[in-house]
Structure formats: C-alpha cells, structure tokens
Design a binder for these strands. Structure first.
Length: 700
DNA sequence: ATGACCAATTGA
DNA sequence: CAATTGGTCATG
C-alpha cells in the first residue's frame, strides 16, 4: 500500500535517478516481506486447476486464465463459485468456470488467492449466455457478468433457501384462458409434454395476461422444467406474482428485481441458483436468472423501453431471452397487446409461430376507437372544452363516459409539455441552427432552444410558413385541475412519475395518467381519451411511431369492449397510419408494414447496425481497422446531439462524434466479431476507447 | 490495468 | 556512452 507515494516520488525525481531495473528490484525487495506470500502451494489432490474468468474491464483480457487450487480450497472452489486471484500484480475478483486436471498453459500457475464462497452463482448455462450476449453486443464477458450475477450478500448466503418440492405443476386449473387463441391449448400441452414451442402472442385487449403467463409456467412445470418470465416494471411483476401464487401455490416461484434491495434480491437469486425454485418473474435483470432445467422464457410487452439495459454492453431483454431459448433449447413466448417489428421478424423468419385470436374475438374485446382532429374551431364552441383545451368530441366523450363509469385520459409526459408547435399545422417547433425543440421559459421572453439556448424572435414554420406558436399540452396536473373545474361532480386523480396508482375503483371518476402509469380498473374504463397523439407521433426517430401506437394500444386496452360500451377517443391526425392501426385494432398489420419499411431503409431488424461514439480522430482510426463484411456501409460521423451527451463536458474535450456501421442481417455476427477485435486491439494498445452500441434502441 | 522488454531517440 | 521515450507484449 505504501508503494504509490514512493512511486510518485520516483517520478518527481527527488531521489537520485537510478536505472529502471535497479529501481524495480529495490521495490520488489521492499514488497516481499510486506506481502505475506502463502505457504508454497500444496495443490488439491484432484482437479488441481481452476479456469477463472477474471473481472477486468479490458477487452483483450476477456478470456479464462488457469490457477492452481490449494488443497485447503478444494471443497470450496466449485464451478461457478467466486474467487480472488492475483493478476498482473493486483488482487482481482473472478468466477471459476470449471475445474480441470491439467492446464494448457506452459508457464507456472499461481495459486488462487482466496475462495470467496462455495456458492455456484454462475451456472454453466448462464456462463454460456454471458458469452453469447457479449459476442452479440460486442462487449466483454465481465461487463455482462455484472448484469447477470447480483452483488454478493454474505449474511444471506449463510441461510438455507426454503426447500419445497419444486415440481407437480397443475395443468388443468390454468388451461382455460388460452382457449381463446387457436393454437393456445396446443401450446400448453406442448409445454406440459416437454416440447419447446416458440410463439409471438398477440394478446386480446383487456386480456388477463398475467394469468396466461402463469398458466404457461404451470404447464412447463408439469413437464419438470422451470420458467423465466420478464415484464417491464414492478407493477407488472406484482400482477404476475399474484397470478403465479394462484396457479402454483405459495413458495413455488420467486420475484427477481433490482428494486427489492441487495439482501432480498440476493436471497431470491440464491433460491433460483440452488434450484429451490424454478419459476422466476422479474424485470430486465431477471433475464439472466440461473433457472435450473429451463423450459420456457417469456417476455411481456417487449416494446417497452425499460427492456433496454442502460449499462454496457446495452443488451435488450428480448434478445437475451431469445439467445437463451436458442442455446438452452427451451420454449419462447413473446407476448403483448402491441407487436414490435422484432417480434414480427421472428414470424417472418419462421423462428416463431403466430398466436392470435380470431378477428371477431378481437372486435368483440376491443373498444370502439375514433380519432378527432384538434382544431381550434371545435374548441371555441364549448366554453368548458375551451378551458380544458379539449376538442369538443373528446369533451363529450368524457361526459358520456362518466355517466357509465371511470374515464382515463392519457397525456404525453411532462417533458413534452413545454415543447412549442406551429399554431396552424402542429409541426413541433425546432431551432433552425441545431434542430432542438423550442420552449417557452417565461411568458415575456421569446421562445428559446432547449439544446443550444438560442432565442428565436422571428421563428417561422418550415412546413407552412406561419409564425404563430402555441404550447400544445399542459402538464398532467394542470390538465387534471382544469378537468376538475369542468366536471366538478366527480373525483379527478392523476397517476404519473413518482405517484403511480395501481388501481382505481370502478366508479365514475376521471384519471389523468402518463403513458405506462395508467391505473387498472376492474371491468375496464368506460372511455379512454388519448390526448395530443400528434405530438408523440411527430418526434424524430423511427421508433417513436411504433412506440406511440404501443402506448395508445396499452391505454385503449384498458377500456371495456365495444359491446359493453367501451369507447376510445384519440386526439390527432385521422390520416396517420398509427392512428388508423389503432382504429382498426391491427397491431400485426402495422408491424408488418413497419418491418417492410425498415427493410427497405436498411434498418434493424432487417439489418444489423452499430454506432461508434468518440472523438473524430479516434473514430476514423477505429473504423479503419474494422474488417467489414461485404455489404457493409459506414454512415457519418455526425456530431452527437447535446442532449444525448454524457454529463458535463470540459471545454477542451474534443466534440463527441458518432458514426453508424450497417450490415445485412446475416452478416451481423461478423460485424460484432470485428468490433470485438477492434476493441481488443485498442485496449491492448492503450488507445482511447470508442463506445460501441449494437442495435441501440433510441437511434435518431 | 501493471510491468517488462526492446528499439529508437535524446543528451552530455 | 548512458538515460529516456515509445511501442509491443504478457499477465495463468
């Protein structure tokens, strides 16, 4: 520990300069008594070699290293356990991949420094999965391992996991809900019989999908196999948790989320790793859960952006689960009310089968959807509507719905609320120099750009030439206040951000919610109003149209069916394809068209794409060393928009630039391989790293 | 990362 | 000539 200041002194030249070799010897001599070298290794009698994956951030060291297992660690050092080893002069953490009788390595092996515990936290299947994910996303196994294995909690490890009989799934009680889907009962029987079907499931609006997921898990359990169910957030986890308790009884499944806190999280993880439970529900971190005898992976609403992991190498939960299904040969279920283009691609390639209800059943379960334009002329007719800034038909819809039950208003998130738009054509107002959104900061000031701060005194709409601006949406609180004045006889509540309501009572009331925060209501909403959809639909990147439809469908699916009087009013452009898909309740058709567009635009999932981010010179250098497969294109570099940059840039930092590399989908593995190779070379040569993201979610 | 080694470069 | 710097390589 005392070497560091001395080394600094050496560099500062306070001592008489000595030849480097002499200095190194001197330091070594000082170090030897301090570092209590363990007694000369007395290797384990059997399998004395441990293959260890060392936790290092360096791309070129992403491979196993062999160590000698001292005899006293023989029982503790099991495959998948944690160890500490000496590597390049420092103590580092590692996982034991396997024990071996001999090493390929020619040199002498160092002994393991310490066996941390005998708990096999990294199963062979998960170790393979980490390798596959690292390869797919051009990252390192140690980065993926940080996502896959939760931090150790020693106290929890000492306690045994409650062991029950993990088997005996009950198929009969759960089968009912799947009867509404042709192929559904067959899916369940396949799972119960040990088969591994793969399906993209378009759930009916209002479907009690947690029960169907639980039924699938129960069927899989009946075949002696485990299940892994991923859902977007902890509200959904709670619903599936309850459904699993109903289907399996208590103690047969476990909840795995990061929110639970380190002790509870590790406790649940250990129960799975030890095979005490074989059914897991959780959020994106659960995708790596070491479920024994995995028979089924399932993901609900795979278009939710919560599935995009924000830490390197930025894997997507759906892709992790699909890699796993391929590797472990288990069943896969990709379900949702909406359908992502990636799910559509699974159908197109024949990887999965389609599981959809017949058209009449969809019609019967879906609410009646209408679209209304938001013209000021309509607003003027009704003073109440004007106060709430609602089109008249939406206002009337709310009034009509309140006579029959609760009404839901979905408003864009608060972040959207301050963006200005053209008064005439509703195009979002953007800053001419940088393209950032314009906003009004104070009533007396001219509008300014949120990215570069430039004030715009003489803005004119590039679409229609008009000069008028309007603040299109009020925040959800303000909307709620104004609705409260318009409908004083009913309660008005909000659900958004920090205060999300899980449910509301099935009585007349108004609920204002942001996307993803809509409360559930028993029996469904009488009316659902989607406010200002044009605002969300006008955002720049390609994903947002699909995303808007997904959110619209999710809210609309909470309304009663048409036969029960369920109505949905969407405020926006009736000609917009996303709103037409909503009116027809045709998420599959929309996904098909969207996939076709992506294909012709050479965008994922029809192509595989990676972004490289860094200083311009480093990018040029990096891309020059790539061995790109045939058909590859390099686009850019362009400057990274200010709002996407990391926190606080020093003025002297070179501008962050981004370029895009794109290849046909079959060459995706080649692209990832050459990116890994490039990162390895850069890391070994101590060159500045460039950030690599394969198929990033929010491109644009 | 850290450290070792080698070759080219600098300095008196 | 020695000392320094910079690139490359290995780390078990």
């Amino acid at each position: 520990m005392s070497q560091r200041p001395e080394a600094a002194d050496d560099r500062a030249g306070r001592e008489t300069p000595l030849p480097q070799v002499v200095r190194a010897r001197a330091r070594e001599a000082q170090q030897r008594p301090a570092a209590t070298a363990p007694a000369p290794a007395d290797p384990a009698p059997e399998l004395p070699v441990a293959r260890v994956l060392v936790d290092l951030p360096l791309a070129h060291l992403d491979r196993p290293f062999d160590y000698l297992v001292p005899a006293r660690m023989h029982d503790t050092v099991v495959p998948g356990s944690r160890v500490k080893v000496r590597f390049a002069g420092q103590d580092v953490d590692g996982f034991v991949l396997e024990r071996a009788g001999a090493s390929e390595h020619a040199g002498r092996l160092s002994p393991l420094r310490r066996a941390v515990s005998a708990e096999p936290v990294l199963s062979p299947a998960v170790a393979r999965l980490c390798e596959l994910v690292a390869a797919r996303y051009a990252g390192t196994r140690s980065d993926v391992l940080r996502l896959a294995v939760p931090p150790r909690h020693a106290t929890t490890e000492k306690r045994p996991s409650p062991a029950g009989d993990p088997w005996a799934g009950d198929l009969a009680s759960a089968a009912a809900g799947w009867g509404g889907y042709p192929g559904g009962p067959e899916l369940l029987h396949g799972l119960a019989g040990g088969a591994s079907p793969r399906a993209v499931w378009s759930a009916l609006p209002g479907e009690s999908w947690p029960c169907l997921l639980a039924a699938a898990a129960a069927a899989t359990l009946a075949s002696g196999r485990g299940s892994l169910l991923c859902v977007p957030d902890h509200r959904d986890v709670a619903r599936v948790d309850a459904a699993l308790s109903a289907a399996l009884g208590t103690g047969r499944h476990v909840v795995l989320t990061a929110e639970a806190g380190p002790a509870r999280r590790y406790r649940a993880f250990l129960a799975v790793a030890r095979g005490a439970v074989r059914v897991v529900v959780g959020t994106r971190a659960a995708a790596f859960a070491p479920v024994h005898d995995l028979g089924l992976v399932a993901i609900w609403d795979d278009g939710d952006d919560l599935y995009a992991e924000p830490r390197a190498p930025y894997p997507h939960t759906r892709e992790v689960l699909l890699l796993r299904a391929d590797d472990e040969g288990c069943a896969a279920l990709v379900g949702g009310v909406a359908r992502t283009v990636e799910a559509e691609y699974l159908l197109r390639t024949g990887w999965a089968a389609e599981l959809t209800a017949p058209r009449p059943a969809v019609r019967a379960a879906a609410p009646l959807v209408s679209v209304t334009g938001a013209t000021d002329r309509e607003l003027e007719r009704d003073p109440h509507a004007r106060t709430a800034r609602l089109p008249r038909s939406a206002f009337e819809g709310i009034r009509d719905g309140l006579a029959r039950g609760p009404v839901l208003l979905q408003t864009p998130r608060q972040g959207y609320a301050t963006i200005l738009a053209c008064e005439t054509c509703r195009s979002p107002a953007r800053c001419p120099p940088c393209g950032g959104p314009l906003r009004q900061t104070a009533a007396e000031r001219p509008p300014s750009c949120r990215w570069c701060g430039t004030e715009q005194r003489s803005w004119a709409c590039p679409e229609c030439g008009e000069r008028g601006l309007r603040a299109p949406v009020l925040g959800d609180r303000r909307t709620a206040e104004e609705l409260g004045r318009a409908f004083p006889q009913v309660p008005v509540r909000t659900s958004s951000g920090e205060r999300v309501l899980a449910t509301v009572d099935p009585v007349p009331s108004v609920v204002v919610a942001t996307p993803g925060a809509e409360p559930l209501v028993d029996g469904g909403y009488a009316v659902v109003v989607l406010l200002d959809t044009w605002l969300m639909l006008a955002r720049t990147d390609l994903r947002t149209v699909e995303e808007s439809l997904r959110r619209g469908l999710a809210a609309a699916a909470l309304a009663r069916g048409e036969a029960d009087g369920g109505r949905v009013v969407a405020v926006g452009d009736p000609a917009h394809p996303a709103l037409q898909a909503l009116v027809r309740w045709d998420p599959a058709g929309f996904a098909r068209r969207e996939l076709e567009e992506r294909r012709s635009a050479h965008l994922p999932p029809a192509s595989r794409l990676a972004t490289l981010t860094g200083a311009e010179a480093d990018l040029a250098d990096a891309v020059a060393t790539l061995r790109l497969p045939p058909g590859a294109e390099v686009l850019g570099p362009v400057e990274v928009p200010p709002h996407e940059r990391g926190p606080r840039q020093v003025a002297t930092d070179p501008a962050q630039m981004r370029l895009v590399v794109r290849v046909p989908r079959p060459a995706g593995a080649d692209l990832s391989r050459t990116l890994v190779e490039m990162q390895g070379v850069r890391s070994a040569r101590k060159l500045p790293m460039v950030r690599v993201q394969v198929d990033p979610v929010g491109l644009g």
